[in-house]
Design a protein around this nucleic acid. Sequence first.
DNA 1: TCGAATGTTGGAATCGTATTACAACACACA
DNA 2: TGTGTGTTGTAATACGATTCCAACATTCGA
Lengths: 201, 201
Amino acid sequence: MKPLPVQLANKIYAASELIAERGLDNTKIEDIAEVTGIPISTLYYHFRGKEEILAFLFNDLLTAIAAEVGVAVESDGTARERLTRVIRAQLGVMLENPASCRALVGDLGRATRLPQLAAALSAAFYQPVERLLREGAHDGSLHPSTDTMSEAVMIFGTVTVAGLMEAVVGSQRQMESIADGVARLLLNGLEPRESGDAGPG
Amino acid sequence: MKPLPVQLANKIYAASELIAERGLDNTKIEDIAEVTGIPISTLYYHFRGKEEILAFLFNDLLTAIAAEVGVAVESDGTARERLTRVIRAQLGVMLENPASCRALVGDLGRATRLPQLAAALSAAFYQPVERLLREGAHDGSLHPSTDTMSEAVMIFGTVTVAGLMEAVVGSQRQMESIADGVARLLLNGLEPRESGDAGPG
DNA sequence: TCGAATGTTGGAATCGTATTACAACACACA
DNA sequence: TGTGTGTTGTAATACGATTCCAACATTCGA
């Protein structure tokens, strides 16, 4: 696939707001053309159709997340510390692109039906976290897990839903604050700990 | 809204499989008519359109979940124990209706854009859990929380994504096994506990 | 049993919108 | 100047949702 001219790439993002609001089906190509300022003909010259426009936006978002998450995974420290950074990374990107996030989640079915995206989703989320879980069992900073895959998926769900909620309500909360809440739940759990709070950085 | 004749209600579920697979837009009314055995005209006699069919299915699922969850919330025991039951209840219904679940999540955007459903969603999930969190802080079985609403949402995300994964892959795992994994993560957290595993029922 | 009300159904008619086709035009670059 | 690539408007085309309508079925109370 040709690499969409920058000038267009910049404009096309304006569509995510619209799609997030109404969903792809209730968004007319005509509307997309209007908000992006790209004529319909031009859109069809570059994209096979509506769905491919959405795919472009998703792919972009997922790539961004995967990149940030990748950095966090590779960083220094215990697995637990890095997991905290991963959570921050994911939430950070989500809060920076609330519209794309809402669009992604709103049309999640479509996203998972687009094969390239399913792979990107997996690469951006599950795999890095799964790896951290294994490493954490090794370095003792995380509990040993029998099923890292399930756990990675659940963690993904927790983080995503948390981020999504903020994206939907257009929250003004700082990413750190949200990330702390997520990390606390995931690391400490809901059951009271005998000792005081474990205070991760 | 008139209460859809039972005979039709039974047939209409056959549509969820289809919608789960392709998403609502890629599902023609014609297809729905075919798999359900309900003629197009009849569908339009009872439903305003495609979207309302989906809404019916969702509403049904959410009502079922809300009911089961409600029982769990009202049951005996500490808040922690009841939370465990809530998780089982939700997962139980999800695994019994995998197609509806996939459809729901796949068209989540649509679901949240349908006002009645947003309310049903909230009633089925957040509210009961939020209540348990507060009660748990009281009876000491759960840690005190500063933001029960966020926490409830995250818990919802964890459980839902876990259930969804199983629904998507058509897992044969027992609900108990899955629920145990979810409960362990949510209650104990990822960080190792000094004492041995806390073993909830 | 009759008649109204309600539900069921097929088929034709509408209508909106995605997508395609095509032709004119712009720009860069050899 | 000529070719290739990208841009854009306009006019088909096609498909599928929804609506309309008329015929028929069923129920139920008078």
